[in-house]
């Protein structure tokens, strides 16, 4: 998934040959993305198809044989697997994921209506992870032996080991039940902008957002601390950093500008790749904090065997991962000076 541009591009200036290479690289990544999407649609459909008969959910057990047969025929459940897949795939292309068995509305709009809540949560978590993780990681990397650095690293090990749901429970127990400072679930008061509800614009909404965002951020926070620390330790020993110091630049400037810029490349890459997993882990956090996002919807639909919603959610997540990988590949080619494609 993380293919690099061909070596010929590294010499890159604004030449026709270079542009052709870039175009070829883009097309190749795009093609592989499409192949992955198609393969995953078969796997997802087959996986979900294997689940027990959705008829049991759809039809009142007391219904007579005629009603049963009618319903089965209406949803195409009596057709062979490949025919069902073909119908599914062709309607997929036109954006039709079928209708939720439970809510009786189209699956895709249903999921998309929950998307803003999940994105709000995921972005807040990423923000917390970045704003806390990079400074803490730099601190730990600058003075690796100091007690404060050891404490930061011990904390990051805990952040890696603790299961997300466990931390969520503890946050609720401490801040909601014992201290009573923050609410334990829901989105709180929301403001509607462009037809979409947002929590972060009201005090009450923010209060509801803090715990779940912190919960979701913890794993990424630990990751960013470790990455930044490792990058910092390496960078501070690099020749150009020593040179900058020798030149008489202040320590703050060397750390804040010279070193900081160079540790950003791996961090940006990982952040990009990890955003997908933040959305995936939102499944856990949303369930604990009753956050009405896509994650809670998928758990509910698994429990009720709501096949179209499950398939639509999974395809959406797969598409998101493929898109993220694609973007990171492109971003990498633009960020890293060695593969700079500078068109200026």
């Amino acid at each position: 998934m993380t293919g690099r541009p061909p070596a010929g591009m590294t010499a890159g200036h604004d030449t026709p040959r270079h542009r052709a290479l870039m175009l070829g690289f883009l097309l190749q990544r795009l093609l592989s993305a499409v192949v992955v999407l198609a393969a995953m649609s078969v796997i997802v459909f087959a996986g979900v198809y294997a689940i027990g008969n959705p008829i049991d959910v759809l039809i009142n057990p007391a219904a007579d044989q005629v009603t049963r047969a009618e319903t089965i025929a209406r949803y195409g459940l009596d057709r062979p697997f490949w025919e069902q897949y073909w119908r599914f795939a062709s309607s997929l292309v036109s954006g039709d994921f079928g209708t939720s068995f439970v809510f009786n509305i189209p699956a895709l709009p249903l999921i998309l209506s929950k998307l803003p809540a999940t994105l709000e949560l995921a972005l807040s978590a990423m923000l917390i992870a970045i704003l806390l993780g990079i400074p803490l990681g730099m601190l730990a990397g600058l003075r690796p032996e100091a007690p404060s650095s050891r404490a930061i690293m011990a904390g990051s090990i805990l952040g890696f080991s603790l299961p997300t749901f466990w931390v969520g429970l503890m946050l609720i127990l401490i801040f909601s039940v014992e201290l009573g400072w923050l609410p334990s679930g829901g989105r709180g008061e929301t403001v509607v902008i462009a037809g979409i509800e947002w929590s972060f614009l009201t005090i009450d909404g923010l209060a509801h957002l803090v715990l779940p965002a912190l919960n979701l951020a913890l794993f990424k926070l630990s990751l960013i601390i470790r990455l930044t620390r490792a990058g910092m330790r390496e960078t501070m020993l690099a020749d150009y950093v020593r040179y900058a110091r020798a030149k008489g630049l202040s320590r703050a400037r060397v750390v804040g500008v010279h070193a900081f810029r160079n540790i950003l490349i791996p961090i940006v890459t990982v952040l990009g790749l990890e955003f997908g997993s933040v959305v995936a882990f939102a499944v856990v956090t949303e369930t604990i904090f009753s956050w009405p996002g896509m994650g809670k919807l998928i758990i509910d639909s698994i429990l009720t065997l709501d096949r179209p919603v499950m398939v639509a959610y999974l395809m959406l997540v797969v598409a998101m991962f493929v898109l993220i990988n694609f973007c990171v590949d492109i971003a990498y080619a633009t960020l890293d000076p060695r593969v700079r494609l500078g068109s200026r």
């Binding site: 998934m1 992955v36 997802v44 996986g47 979900v48 294997a50 689940i51 027990g52 790749l273 997908g276 997993s277 995936a280 882990f281 499944v283 856990v284 998928i298 698994i302 499950m310 999974l314 997540v317 797969v318 991962f321 990988n325």
Partner: peptide
């Protein structure tokens, strides 16, 4: 590689959902 680009928890969730 493809599998590793998805979080294990998500894969496990999907599989348990289909296996029961």
């Amino acid at each position: 590689d493809l599998q590793l680009s998805f979080p294990a928890i998500l894969l496990a969730l999907v599989l348990v959902a289909s296996l029961g």
